[in-house]
Simulated assay, not measured.
Amino acid sequence: MISRRLLLGAGLAAPFVATPFLGRSEASTHGFPERTVRYVCPFPPGATNDNVSRTMSRALGPRLGVTVLVENKAGAGGAVGSRMVAEAKPDGHTLLNASAGNLTIAPHLSNVGYDPLRDLAPVALAGDAYSVVAVNPALPVHSVAELIDFGRRRPGVLNYASAGIGSAGHLRGALLADEARFEAVHVPFPGSAAAATSVVAGDCHLVIDPIAMPHVQEGRLRALATVGPDRWDAFPDLPNLAELGIGRAWPGGTWFGLFAPGTTPAPVIARLNRDFNDSLAEPEVAAALRRFGLKPEAVSPEELGRRVAADHAAIGRALRRLNIA
């Protein structure tokens, strides 16, 4: 069992500064890197995005041979930090730890100030994230079937918390209610940690997010199912929603990846991709990401770009069908 302190410690601590090696492992690429790299997390401390940012900054610093500093720039469901990176100088020294929602959901819902397919360059994928469907223990439901029945018998009473409008938790809550044919009220928060805490406190009923994992393990929330490519090894006895016949056609996924300003030179992107993927192969890094609910996966920038484009299009169609705007 993983303690909440172990899981969230990286996110709640002071911003991590990686300690560089005394010498660089190789010559710079197009003058990169030549100074501190800003690693922007577009969510508050304690969120899954924050935990992933700090894990990967610690791994990248020694490989790049410079300090890698995490900066939390939260706001507008991740759009504030994402826009800051999109508008930064495209030299590889300002990077974004994006969540799927920043690039494939939020841009459909509001004027975020950036085009995710043009203004941000895909670099590397940290991995897909599993989520847990969790409720406050006081809610009289112990399975997804009972949750659906509760929602149908009490239209508009059930609510779900998320990391904000346009977050993956927002979309998944809406998709669950739509597919299962019940009404639920969306309650947005400024980050996933705050959303999960609201369900623990009983202010909200339901959350679908990786950050619910430690609350479930410590008995503060009740898990009903998981969401992801297969069963989550942290909860081997919990069914995946797909096993229950739910969510098989849901668009997109919950992934975390590294992005740079849109016109960053290809050699810099290639260097970052190589160092990032090499970091994923380190047992300590992979283990840390799994603790945060990710399934690490090394891909090329081109593959990540295709995924973003496909998810962006599919989610746009789903949002229009759900009348979410």
Score class of each variant (00 low, 15 high):
232 W>C: 11
221 L>W: 09
232 W>D: 15
57 S>R: 03
249 A>L: 11
175 L>S: 03
50 D>P: 01
317 R>N: 05
296 P>A: 06
324 I>M: 14
229 P>C: 04
61 G>S: 08
209 D>W: 01
308 V>P: 03
288 A>P: 00
248 R>F: 00
96 L>I: 07
6 L>F: 14
58 R>Y: 09
273 N>L: 01
307 R>T: 12
36 T>F: 02
65 G>P: 00
238 L>F: 09
117 L>I: 01
215 H>M: 14
268 V>I: 15
161 A>L: 05
139 L>S: 04
192 S>V: 02
318 A>I: 06
86 A>R: 09
278 D>K: 03
124 A>R: 08
178 D>Y: 11
7 L>M: 14
96 L>W: 08
235 F>D: 01
308 V>L: 15
295 K>G: 06
48 T>N: 12
225 A>Y: 04
287 A>F: 00
123 V>K: 08
125 L>D: 09
41 C>N: 15
70 V>F: 01
29 T>W: 00
132 V>S: 05
151 G>K: 00
263 T>W: 02
164 G>L: 08
110 S>W: 13
148 I>R: 11
21 F>T: 12
38 R>N: 12
149 D>G: 11
299 V>H: 05
215 H>R: 14
261 P>G: 01
138 A>E: 13
144 V>L: 15
135 V>S: 02
15 P>R: 06
115 D>W: 09
133 V>A: 00
105 I>A: 08
49 N>H: 07
148 I>N: 00
74 A>H: 06
121 A>L: 12
168 A>L: 03
301 P>R: 10
36 T>G: 01
260 A>D: 03
203 D>N: 10
171 L>E: 07
236 P>Q: 11
288 A>D: 15
299 V>A: 10
206 L>R: 02
181 R>Q: 15
321 R>W: 05
76 A>E: 14
6 L>D: 15
119 D>W: 08
289 L>Y: 04
251 P>W: 09
72 N>L: 04
143 S>R: 09
247 G>C: 01
99 S>C: 08
17 V>A: 14
59 A>N: 06
225 A>V: 00
90 P>C: 07
281 A>D: 14
292 F>I: 13
6 L>C: 07
272 L>T: 04
282 E>W: 06
133 V>T: 11
257 G>Q: 06
159 N>G: 11
153 R>E: 11
56 M>C: 05
261 P>W: 02
262 G>S: 05
153 R>C: 08
170 H>Y: 14
184 A>R: 06
182 F>N: 05
202 G>S: 06
196 A>K: 03
147 L>E: 00
66 V>P: 01
48 T>E: 09
215 H>S: 13
122 P>E: 07
176 L>T: 04
168 A>Y: 11
212 A>S: 12
202 G>N: 07
291 R>S: 14
227 V>R: 03
138 A>T: 13
37 V>P: 05
161 A>F: 10
231 R>H: 09
168 A>M: 13
20 P>E: 06
155 P>L: 07
61 G>D: 08
301 P>N: 10
